[in-house]
Amino acid sequence: MARPARFTTDQFLDAAVRKAAAAGPTAVTMSAVAAEVGAPSGSAYHRFAGRTELLAQTWLRTVETFQASYLAACETVGDDPAQAARGAARQVVAWSRAHPEQVAVLLHGADAFDRAHWPEPHRRRAEAGNQRVHAALAALAAALDLRGPEAADRVTLALVDLPLALVRRHLRGGTPLPAHAEDLAEQGAAALLCGRFPSPASPAGAERAQDATSHRPVR
């Protein structure tokens, strides 16, 4: 009967995330990750074909964890598309607040994790995740009646680029995300997508947000 593995794949990937968050993707080597886990170097090679495989798996597990929570926020569009948009923008910040090491990985970008040399199955897996996000954003734009050539850029700016810029500024500056960060992300999304500046955290904002869907969307 085979002995159970002493170290799991997730333990190695958790260690890779810690190394990348602390010192960047260049710090993620087979030996460094094994040492972080407290395992012999050879143990890493039982789970990953090499460093490129380790980097790919580190990125993919991290981005897919983020995408799962982000898509859950986007896909409430059938209930209230304006609320779904505001919730998606907030979720970028909220997830980043809850997972500081993982968001540090994502802010480096996939190229820093050697994407150019990933095996084809990993490249397809990454593209499938990106396509799910693109489809969700397109559905949200349609539900908000955003049309024309600028619609995709407007939605991406509102629900991805601006929230991540807010997170990046504080993370790179070594300062914690302020308590109002989610509200700012929401207000930016509302301004770009709904023509509103709701801030549910304040009484005045709550009044403005009571009927977000009644305002004519920005086209």
Results as ranks from 00 to 15, higher is better:
Arg169Lys: 05
Pro198Thr: 11
His99Thr: 05
Thr26Glu: 14
Ala22Pro: 02
Val93Asn: 14
Ala135Tyr: 00
Ala152Gln: 11
Met30Cys: 08
Thr156Asn: 12
Ala49Gln: 06
Asp153Ala: 05
Phe48Gln: 03
Ala126Asn: 15
Cys74Trp: 09
Gly174Tyr: 02
Asp14Glu: 04
Gln57Lys: 08
Pro119Gly: 07
Pro200Cys: 06
Val93His: 15
Pro121Gly: 09
Pro217Met: 08
Ala165Trp: 05
Pro81Gln: 12
Pro198Arg: 04
Leu177Ala: 07
Arg172Asp: 13
Phe48Gly: 10
Ala84Tyr: 15
Thr8Met: 02
Leu106Tyr: 04
Asp10Arg: 08
Leu177Asp: 02
Gln91Thr: 15
Gln131Lys: 06
Arg97Met: 07
Leu177Ile: 02
Ala126Leu: 15
Ala21Glu: 01
Glu186Asp: 11
Arg90Ala: 15
Pro200Phe: 07
Arg132Leu: 12
Glu36Asn: 00
Gln57His: 12
Pro119Lys: 10
Ala35Pro: 00
His215Asp: 12
Met30Thr: 14
Phe66Trp: 12
Phe113Ser: 01
Ser41Lys: 10
Leu159Ile: 10
Pro217Glu: 13
Ala88Lys: 13
Ala68Trp: 01
Ala35Glu: 10
Ser96Pro: 11
Thr52His: 11
Ala212Arg: 09
Val92Ile: 12
Pro176Ala: 10
Ala35Leu: 09
Glu150Lys: 09
Gly50Ile: 05
Thr8Asp: 00
Ala82Lys: 04
Pro121Ala: 08
Ala68Glu: 12
Val133Asp: 05
Arg147Lys: 14
Ala116Tyr: 01
Val17Tyr: 01
Val28Gln: 00
Gln83Thr: 04
Ala112Val: 00
Lys19His: 05
Phe113Asn: 00
Val133Thr: 13
Thr62His: 05
Pro178His: 00
Ala135Ile: 03
Leu137Thr: 12
Phe7Ser: 13
Gly42Thr: 10
Ser69Met: 05
Ala39Arg: 01
Thr29Leu: 01
Asp161Gly: 09
Ala68Gln: 13
Pro81Leu: 11
Phe12Ser: 04
Leu107Gly: 12
Asp183Ala: 14
Pro149Ile: 13
Arg18Tyr: 02
Gly174Met: 04
